[in-house]
Structures are given as structure tokens and as C-alpha cells.
Design a protein around this nucleic acid. Sequence first.
RNA 1: GUCUCCUUAGUCUAGGGGCCUAGGACAUCGCCCUCUCACGGCGACAACACGGGUUCAAAUCCCGUAGGAGACGCCA
Length: 467
Amino acid sequence: MNNKVNVRFAPSPTGVLHIGSVRTALFNWLYARHNNGNFFLRIEDTDKLRSTDENTKLIFKILEWLQINWDGEPVIQSSRMDRHKEVALDLVARGKAYYCYCTPEELASKKEYCLRENKPYKYDGKCRNGNTNHDLNIKPVIRLKSELDGFTVVNDMVQGEVKVNNSQLDDLVLIRSDGTPTYMLSVVVDDHDMNITHVIRGDDHLTNTFRQIQIYKACGWDIPKFGHIPLIYGPDGAKLSKRHGAASAIDYMQLGYLPEAISNYLLRLGWSHGDEEIITRENAIKWFDFNSVGKSPSRFDMAKLQNLNAHYIKERNNESLLEYALPFFKCELTEENKKNILKGMNSLKERAKTIVELADSSLIYVKAPEIYDDKCSKYATSNHLELLREIITKLNNAEFSTNEEELCNSIKEFANLRNVKLVEIAQAIRGALCGKLASPSVFEIISIIDKEETIKRLNSFVDHYSK
RNA sequence: GUCUCCUUAGUCUAGGGGCCUAGGACAUCGCCCUCUCACGGCGACAACACGGGUUCAAAUCCCGUAGGAGACGCCA
């Protein structure tokens, strides 16, 4: 039990789950599974004003979507406030923390002074509990009495040895004046109580780590190992955020990215295993380790994600793909529709980069085009229309079958006879069937939607452009 | 401003002193395939931030410089 690896993912529900956080979750999860350890989930909702149930539910939803399963029940941090306070009080009792009565004004001027003089903000006698010089109407905060001399060293699994002079560390607040514990305190207490052995989180927490180590030391607790993974940047090199477009995990879900594509992409962002690009879950678990986690931050590249997504779309079987795509259709599908889409799926899926695109292109098996793309007019000259009329007649007379291969041969022959290129006829048919000039094979489409529907669409097209 | 971290093509990366005329992938471009668009196949373009050392030998080790990022809350 004692040497078992315990990691946690500790998002705060103060906003929608960031895609960078998802990668943190993934790395934690992989590390746990690689080591046969536990992956715990903790919701850090101590900021009651900004935390919402909705965001919490979203965290569960995204993790489930990505099949990042957690062990045990999620820990709700706010429910552990009493424990956090208890630790703070104990620290005060043991002289490791103190009540600070500084008013916000005093604090501001003091801070300004420290900033100007380039000194860290440290406790002084004036802030001590029991100081009668101070107005006891002021509600105090509890601050940690941090070390003044020496260094604090983190032996980070990613960043290596990182050292900071203790003179840089300030006396952080443990308990706010309203009596609630701060993040710094809660994290340390919870990680300790949950027996967390490895804290894997975003690089933006690296400097917090020094301060948290001070808390561990004051409490006399074992310090876990830390791994700070580099952040994900936007295309401009700054921390990926909403202004870069899709920054939240839910965005990618709605944009039609498959969970396996997201996982694979996120895994390769900052981690590698030789030349491997397409990595299965099994191999990810087998191969994942911190030696191969890069130190430098990486930029989010939508094009590569799309490429991966296209790969995984092709890899999925047709039934599961349709099932997955169902919510992306803006209209109801009949069983007949589904059957036809499934028939055409092999051709549809190799063209789609996202599920949104897949659902959109599947519409050719659901209904006739409502509008024709402007480019269609190029294949709607009187000559084209005349050819289409002939084809309609031949279909009606059963001179042309709707068997894909037979029809293909017949039309080729027909083109030859009329002395036009096949592309001229095919494109005209395509325009009529799809309303646009890019689609799977027209012969395949006809074989699926069958004679009646084909003739209907061809007639509409001819009518439309005859006017 | 202070502290901390980072730096191989447009992007993700391989690389651990000689296997490097720097490998793979995405993107881009070209050719082939072809009823369109894709898929697929073949090919091209394109990088060790800069400057000094150390060494017979440096992308790799050391020192500077420059650039970028993160943290400096009674947010998490």
C-alpha cells in the first residue's frame, strides 16, 4: 500500500475544463495505470463564488468521454474545510503560522514598499497574534511563517532540480479573514490526506510548489514527488485561451473530434516515444513515463489534430461511427436513412476530418439538395441538361440499371457515344444529387438512393436550370 | 521589476560527443491514381536562436547574449 503510486487530477470548476487540463488529467491517468496505481479525482471548489455545479458535471462528462476513469469517489474539496482549518490552527498553536491583522491599506502600502525595495513580503512583529497595538475589530488572516534563510529545492520529474532562495518566498495566507481556507493550504492538506505520492500538474504551478513545500515542512509531512508539465500555448506562443478559439475540452467534443484523436494528440504534445505517432491506449499505458516528457511548451496545432481525427474516423467501424454521429445531425433520421448512410459509410468516412463534416456529408442519403452550389451552373448548360434528360429516360426505361458497376459502365459508354468526357456527365449528376461538386462516387450514390430518388433529383436539377 | 523555466523546419518532435550530408509526423507544394472531392502512393521545400569556449571531434558538455513563457492575490 505504501509504495503504491497515487496520483490525482484536481481541476477547479470555476470555468469550463481547459484542454490543457485534459492533458494533465491524461498524463496523471497514464502514469497511474502504467504503475498499477490509483488515479483520484478531486474537485477544487473552494472558490464558492465562481464554482458551479455545471462545470463540475462537465468535468465528469469530459473524463468519461475520454475514458479517463478515476478510482473511488471524487473528493469534493469544500467538504473538507474543517480539516483544513484544523491544520491551520494547529500550525498557529505550534508557532508555524500566525494571525495577521494588517488592513488592506497597510498591506497595499507594505507590498508597494516591498516591490519598490525588491524585498519579499515577510511577517514582522506587528502581525503577530495578541498584538494589542492592533485594532481587534479587524478580522485577521492566518499566514504561514515561512523560512527566511536557505533554499527550497524541488526535484521535479520533468524540470529537474529547481532551486529558489527562501528569501523570495512570502508568508502566504492559509486562512482568509472570513475563516475559509485558501487553495495553497487545501491542496497540501488534501494531497497529504489522500496519500498522493506524485503531484503531476501544469507548469504554472511550479513556483507555487516552493510555497507548498513550506507548508509540508511546517506540518512535518512527507513531500510528494512533483512533475510539472509544460503548458500548451496557442499559435501565438501565449498560454492557450479562449481568444485562440477553442480552448475548452467541450469545444472539441462539439467540433466533432473523437476522444481517441484528442487523447492521441494531447499525448504527443510534449511527450514522445521514438517515431511513434499513432498510439493506442494500450501502448500509451505501456510506454508512458516522465523521461520522455519534454521540458518546453508546445503550441496547439489544429491541423495535426484534424489529421489524427481523420485517421481515427477511418479506423472506427461504420456502425459505431453512425451511432457517434447521430447527435450531430440536425434532422431526425429514419431507419431507411440510417441503412443508406451505413451503405455509403466507407466512402463518407474517408472524406471526413470531423464528425460534423461526416454528418453533413451523410445528408446526401437523407434528402435531396435544397440549394445548388453556384459552381453547379458550370455543369448545367443546355448540353448538360440534355444529357441528363437522356439519362433520366434510360433509367426510366431500365436501359440503365442502378447497380454501381453496371451503371458506371453504361454511363461511360454513353459518354463515349455522345462524344463528351465522363467528367462532364458525372459532375452534372453530382450537382443534381448532392447540390455540390464534391462527393463520393456518383454511381455509388445512385446505387444507394436507388432509381426513384435519383430520377427525382435529376428532374429537379433539370427543372431548376431550365428556367 | 523580481524569481523560475524554455529555445532542432510554419507546427509536434527524434537526438544523450563521432552512427547526423540532422530522422519521423502534420502543414505546404508537385507528380501518380481518378467521375469530383478525398483516400492512397511517390517526391520536394524546410531546422540545430546567436556568440564564445572545452575537445582530435559539439545539435549534444560549459559560459555568456538574445528571444519567449510562467509565477509573483484573502483566484485556483
